[in-house]
């Protein structure tokens, strides 16, 4: 009985993931201000997982450039970008998603990498090897990573 329930739950989860429409990096639609109102996955972002993406060097590593008081337990916050304290009160969800996907659409001179972009680069490499990219690039973050980060950032209201 228990096993059947678990199986049913697992099937349910995979079915919902399979049915969710993931927007590919080249199909993202932003408005004239760079804001993206539609979720990239249709699955609500998980702010706990978003914090993990923010602080992992192998994922978003957002704190490499941004200071976030709520993430103080993770050492070495950078100073290259603005502090994200209160970011959730400054930007709505569409603007936040637009900034994480492609900040340069909103702030043309921004140093910030575009986390959901796969083309238009000068001398794209094969990750951090220094060699040329062998083929099509994956975006720096997955669609769900982006949704999770956006969900976390929207919690930063102070």
């Amino acid at each position: 009985m228990t096993r059947q329930l678990i199986l049913a739950t697992l099937l349910g989860v995979s079915a919902s993931v399979a049915h969710a429409e993931v927007v590919s990096p080249t199909a993202v639609v932003a408005n004239e201000y760079g804001e993206i109102s539609t979720s990239l996955t249709g699955v609500a972002g998980d702010p706990v997982r978003g914090a993990e993406v923010m602080t992992s060097r192998s994922l978003g590593n957002c704190i490499a450039c941004h200071q976030v008081t709520a993430l103080e337990e993770f050492p070495f916050h950078g100073e290259v970008g603005p502090s994200l304290d209160g970011a959730g009160a400054r930007w709505d969800e569409a603007a936040m998603r637009g900034i994480v996907v492609n900040a340069k659409a909103i702030f043309p001179e921004s140093v910030m990498p575009s986390f959901y972009k796969v083309d238009g680069f000068t001398r794209p490499g094969d990750a951090f090897t220094g060699k040329a990219a062998p083929g099509a690039l994956d975006p720096l973050l997955t669609a769900q990573d982006i949704e999770d980060v956006v969900a976390y950032l929207l919690t930063l209201t102070d």
Binding site: A64, P113, F121, A133, L137
Partner: peptide, 28 residues
């Protein structure tokens, strides 16, 4: 001044615009 790679960073982005700032634990 050319922004290279998937991170789209030029020499200037770090060493002209951000010298003296930290990027994670690195002092630019």
């Amino acid at each position: 001044y050319t922004r290279y790679g998937q991170l789209e960073l030029s020499c200037a982005n770090c060493h002209e615009q951000n010298y003296g700032n930290y990027i994670r634990a690195d002092h630019l």
